[in-house]
Write a protein that binds this DNA or RNA. Structure first.
Length: 120
DNA sequence: CTGGTGACCATTA
DNA sequence: TTAATGGCCACCA
């Protein structure tokens, strides 16, 4: 399309990427930024999700940070809300953390799990 | 245009 | 292992 309109922002591109995350899987801010053509703009993803129009279908809860944790403070209601929504999709939390190698999207590669034993 | 800010990230101690 | 620091990029006032 010739439309140089680009809608007014990268938000749409980000939202569109988030819409691709399958149910039961999660992605990180940095990954979403890169897939949206905005490498390095991880913080913008948080900004975009924060500005989501009310009632949108964008599965914002499937985006967490690179540590595999929810980016809200535990004291915030949104923290529990997000964790509950993920739990309903069978995303398992281990000590407030999600196994990125298992639930991360897109999948990194064919290697299933090199060595699960991190300890030696 | 300039400066402040953020639902971040990787590195370093 | 967790905590602190600097760097990123784009949006907003």
């Amino acid at each position: 399309m010739k439309g140089p309109k680009v809608v007014s922002s990268s938000y749409v591109r980000i939202w569109r990427t988030v819409l691709k995350i399958p149910r039961g899987r999660i992605s990180t801010y940095g990954t979403v930024a890169e897939l949206s053509g905005l490498p390095g703009a991880a913080r913008l993803v948080g900004y975009a999700l924060h500005n989501l129009p009310n009632g949108s279908d964008v599965p914002w809860h499937r985006v967490i940070n690179s540590k595999g944790k929810i980016s809200f403070e535990k004291s915030q209601d949104m923290y529990l809300t997000q964790r509950r929504m993920l739990r309903e999709e069978d995303v398992v939390f281990e000590n407030e953390k999600v196994n990125l190698w298992r639930y991360g999207w897109p999948r990194v590669g064919g290697k299933e799990s090199k060595r699960a034993r991190s300890k030696r």
